[in-house]
Design a protein around this nucleic acid. Structure first.
Length: 706
DNA sequence: GCGCCTCGAGCTCT
DNA sequence: CTCGAGGCGC
């Protein structure tokens, strides 16, 4: 590679030519890498090209090419498994813990469907296998893909490994053209014990429990290792289908069985909550002798037509629920209570425990939630519901909520040491000494130090580099903590000047354990790649209270560009003025959230920090929706009442894709009101204002053909 | 006031 | 991955 002109010295014309040259070089390198599996240039050279490209784009955002290499994700595969987008999302289930939750589930469904308490309604009940879920895609009877659940939308491609599992047929006869079978991969107790014995013999590490063993085995990069692991599979559901598997859940499961899948033999049809609970008790009784781990019972509405009517909430189906077995409990001693300070200044107490095994995992920390959870009484003296008066030195009972998060369930007062004192929750921040205050009605006490507090600063930085925010490769929580302690990074903007400031200091970095020339250069390359950042990610990365991932994207979609967003938030004064009104008019933005935004941007030091940061970035605007031929482009639409043919989220997404703005309330600016049944005050107001009002069908007709 | 959703914070192991 | 707290919309 020839010695290049420094990016800072390029003029516009040179930059344009250089971007073109880099685009073709990188494309050629990708081609060689993929086609021949024999790259012509080294990884370091390749990274340098991409880095240079990103740096030039950051300086001349207007010159970014349509075929920009930085827009292409993963030209070279990262290590590990390829990502797979599920044709249909893999959802999780709502949970029931008590008998009452199960009867509520039944009542809720009846209400939703408009069925009386005595109308027949059948459910299936089956054990909930404690493994990991897997989606198998068959096309014309051939297994073409196996994917893990991942976050529900995007999982990992583990096809090669899935092919080694005996319970998973490679080929089906008489199957629908497209068939996605979903089920659980697990390991039996006997196989788990044998595997661990083998692992111990060969000096390899043993697994804590069958679930971890199954997960570890399926995620082997080398399928021949997976082949040697005794994995099994139960089918219990499906995703995309080219034709239905049956009219009921049970029929569909039977069909899967006849196609050659293992299905759980304890699947039963139940006539209502009484029978469901009876089957639950039955399964719980057999739990120890089943030979594999289960963690509850799943109930599903049997009639598939009813399932379709019930549909989904954002992450769970309305027609199914998981009835969990009581969590495993363990007693241990509480050795200390530490206070952690979060990104928003929240003081959270954490129990330090004498290590104890709970549900196959050694637990030494547990959350204590907040002040009231520890105290038996509040400062003013009244009893606090749920307050346990937990003291250092106490014997406490631990369980893992949802089999994950360790919590303190109970205290054994009979074993309390006589000298144990009630815990005094600090009123000053343990990290910076600032006052820690609790707003009226708030459960959380917060450090008021803001950016002065080192703990808050570090947590904010960690948030900034986290996955859904800037997601900088090689700059995780650990590194940020290091760099912060070293004084190299005090605020987000510092990340983007790290390379130039470090200059000769690079030697210091390289001397640090784990850092060599290559990793340092990789880090700088990764940082440069993120100088170009989508608006929503940037807003989220700022870490403003109440402004999470969803809200950030909502704001990004509404304002479109950083400039528009920033101007609006800066101009808005709490509770008044047109900028405030616009902010509040966004569906999903209320007073609390808007105040949090506006006051953050009104703070001089916060603003300065944000301005510095944005100076190093090219913020990608949200792609303008296709408005050509859209009858609703630029119009403000409000949805009210019950929508029957689409969910509110769908309606909104669709309208926005057509260039409309969706607002939450009717005002003089509203152009169209779409009113479903049950519309109330909004319809009235729209009528008063003479605003065009459509029913759902009218709306669909209006946007038909777009 | 209620249902649904989002945020923020917690833990362990890979 | 799950929970409690709390926000938003009806």
């Amino acid at each position: 590679m020839k010695d290049d002109v420094k990016v800072e010295d390029l003029n516009r014309q040179q930059a344009e030519a250089e971007l073109e040259r880099l685009a073709s070089l990188i494309a050629a390198a990708n081609q060689a890498y993929h086609a021949e599996d024999a790259p012509e240039i080294s990884d370091a050279e390749y990274d340098a090209l991409k880095r240079r490209n990103a740096a030039i784009e950051a300086r001349f955002p207007e010159l970014i090419r349509a075929d920009s290499p930085s827009a292409q994700i993963g030209a070279r595969p990262s290590e590990g498994f390829a990502k797979v987008t599920h044709a249909q999302r893999m959802l999780s289930l709502g949970n029931a813990f008590e008998v009452e939750d199960v009867t509520d589930f039944d009542t809720g469904i009846r209400k939703y469907l408009g069925l009386g308490p005595d109308a027949p309604l059948r459910y299936t009940a089956e054990p909930k296998i404690d493994g990991l879920s897997l989606s198998l895609r068959y096309e014309n009877g051939e297994l073409v893909q196996a994917a893990t659940r991942g976050d529900g939308s995007v999982g990992e491609n583990v096809t090669a490994n899935a092919r080694t599992i005996d319970d998973i047929p490679q080929r089906l006869s008489g199957a629908p053209e497209v068939l996605e079978v979903r089920g659980e991969v697990y390991m039996s107790h006997a196989d788990f014990a044998a595997l661990n014995a083998r692992q111990a013999d060969s000096g390899d590490k043993t697994f804590a429990n069958p679930r971890n063993a199954a997960a570890g085995s399926l995620r082997q990069l080398d399928p021949s290792v997976t082949r040697g692991r005794p994995l099994k599979f139960f089918a219990y559901s499906w995703g995309e289908l080219s034709e239905p598997l049956g009219k009921t859940q049970l029929e569909a499961i039977e069909r899967l069985k006849s196609l050659g899948f293992s299905t759980n033999p304890l699947t039963r049809l139940c006539d209502g909550p009484q029978e469901m609970l009876a089957h639950y008790a039955d399964i719980e009784e057999q739990r120890a002798t089943l030979g594999y781990d289960i963690d509850g019972v799943v109930y599903k509405v049997d009639d598939l037509a009813l399932q379709a009517r019930l549909g989904f909430r954002s992450t769970t189906p309305r027609w199914a629920i998981a009835h969990k077995f009581p969590a495993e409990l363990a007693w241990t001693r509480l050795e200390a209570i530490d206070i952690q300070v979060g990104r928003t200044g929240a003081l959270s107490p954490v129990a330090r425990l004498q290590p104890v095994t709970v549900g196959g995992v050694v637990v030494s920390n547990a959350t204590l939630h907040n002040e009231d959870y520890i105290a038996g009484r509040s400062a003013s003296g009244e009893e606090i519901r749920g307050g346990k008066d937990i003291r250092v030195g106490d014997w406490v009972q631990i369980y893992r909520a949802g089999d994950v998060i360790p919590k303190v369930a109970d205290v054994d007062l009979s074993k309390r040491p006589p000298e144990a004192q009630p815990y005094a929750f600090p009123t000053r921040c343990p990290e910076c000494g600032s006052e820690a205050v609790r707003e009226a009605g708030d459960a959380v006490r917060r450090c008021t130090g803001g950016l002065i507090c080192p703990a808050q600063a570090v947590e904010k930085l960690k948030h900034f580099v986290s996955r859904p925010a800037f997601d900088i490769d090689g700059l995780g929580a650990k590194q940020v903590e290091q760099f912060h302690a070293d004084g190299w990074i005090a605020e987000p903007a510092d990340i983007f000047t790290l390379q130039e400031r470090l200059g000769s200091g690079l030697r210091q970095l390289k001397n640090r354990e784990g850092w060599g020339e290559k990793s340092a250069n990789n880090l700088f390359a990764a940082i440069d790649e993120r100088r170009r950042i989508p608006l929503g990610r940037l807003i989220f990365a700022l870490g403003i209270r109440h402004v999470g991932e969803q809200v950030s994207n909502l704001l990004a979609r509404h304002y479109g560009t950083w400039e528009a967003f920033e101007t609006a938030v800066r101009e808005a004064e709490p509770l008044e003025g047109p900028a405030w009104d616009e902010l509040i008019s966004i569906d999903g933005v209320g007073k609390v959230l808007a105040t949090s935004l506006v006051t953050t941007f009104a703070q001089a030091n916060e603003r300065a920090s944000i301005d510095r940061l944005v100076g190093y970035l090219y913020v990608q605007p949200v792609a303008a929706p296709k408005t050509e031929g859209s009858p609703v482009a630029g119009k403000t639409v409000v949805f009210t009442g019950t929508l029957e043919k689409m969910t509110r989220a769908e309606a909104k997404a669709r309208a926005e894709a057509l260039g409309a703005k969706v607002a939450g309330s009717v005002s003089a600016k509203t152009d169209i009101l779409v009113a479903g049944p049950g519309a109330g005050s909004k319809a009235k107001k729209a009528a008063e204002l003479g605003i065009q009002t459509l029913d759902e069908d009218g709306w669909l007709a209006l946007i038909a053909g777009t």
